[in-house]
Design a protein around this nucleic acid. Structure first.
Lengths: 200, 200
DNA sequence: GTCTATAAATAGATAGAC
DNA sequence: GTCTATCTATTTATAGAC
């Protein structure tokens, strides 16, 4: 039963299939066999091309995802639309079919265990430290930016991973319209002394 | 090497150890052997007491966590402090040592795969549908409440699972002070027609 | 109640034929 | 370049001795 004799781009098909399986099952839940089945190839081929499950996983995250750069770029510009620009740029990464899979895989994998998070944390810390130095206004810029990003990650995770009804089905522009004001609040209004809520 | 001859409450020790391992490694990453080691007992004892890894996992989530009830209760009362009450009630579940483990385990497990999420989703949908019927003001109450919760989940996940510096080290009261205003914004100010941002 | 020994299943990886 | 067959390690689970 000779399958796929002259593989024009078997490698790419494996990566695509792997993205689907990793995205829905997580790193540990995904098996090489399941990925091979989805790609329509033999499990041995995966090791032939990638060497190991972990290297295949890495290949799965590579291509686009210059997520940090795309987000940092959007911080420049007028303070007025800052919240909307960041909200749109980030949520587009999840909406765009070209990057959706990677976002799901990255968040799911990094949240799956302390060990996995330890490998990803440096990248996140680096981005958080580069961002506010330049463009996020006011003191505690780093904390504000982190809060804004935490908010966005939460919204994206509930919409695209938890897939819970109200947020899952919201139109993209309405989602932006409802989320951006709170992000803007974090980025620009933070908590000036006196505006701070009572602490107990 | 007879270990722990008269187990006063071996069962409880196993559950406590399991919480630690499940919280740091996730469901699939945790092995019965690792849990047994952490509890200082033989792996066979775990099956003796719980029957299977999955039932041990369920036992791990049981006790406190009436999270939904605690959150819904807090929605009653003056609209003014609504954001802060909800923020405080939810983030306290993560801060309190008695419930911290379960929150980590529940979020980590439910986000780890589509299959796991499918088992948890009904509970979440139920809570989301019960909440706004009564106390969250305005139209689209359900959507607003969902956005507020997504925000809070994001903040909690970054602080307690990702453990990224700025949010990880923030004092609890300052975290509340910085988060509550955005939550309040979602719950009470939403987006009235005319206040909505341009859609492109 | 607790442990030893082992079964049974699953998964990642490799050798080699075609 | 692709597949068959198999190895080895790991893991959940069970049977039964002490």
């Amino acid at each position: 039963m000779g399958r796929r004799p002259g593989g024009l781009s078997t490698r790419k098909e494996i990566v695509d299939a792997a993205r689907g399986i990793f995205a829905s099952s997580g790193y540990r839940g995904a098996t090489v066999r399941a990925i091979a089945d989805a790609a329509g190839v033999d499990p041995a081929l995966i090791h032939h091309y990638f060497g190991s499950k972990e290297k295949l996983f890495a290949a799965t995250l590579e291509f686009p995802v210059h997520a940090p750069d795309r987000l940092l770029a959007v911080l420049s510009g007028p303070r007025e639309g800052l919240g909307e620009r960041l909200t749109r740029a980030y949520l587009e990464l999840w909406e765009d079919p070209a990057t959706h899979g990677q976002m799901v895989i990255a968040v799911r994998a990094s949240l799956s265990s302390d060990e996995a998070m330890a490998r990803v944390r440096p990248t996140i810390v680096d981005m958080l430290s580069r961002a506010p130095a330049s463009d996020v206004p006011g003191p505690d810029a780093q904390t504000r930016f982190a809060l804004a990003m935490a908010h966005l990650v939460g919204v994206a995770a509930v919409r695209h991973i938890s897939k819970v009804p109200p947020l899952r089905d919201l139109g993209f522009e309405e989602l932006i319209a409802r989320t951006a004001p709170a992000v803007q609040l974090h980025l620009t209004e933070g908590c000036e002394p006196g505006e701070r809520r009572r602490t107990s």
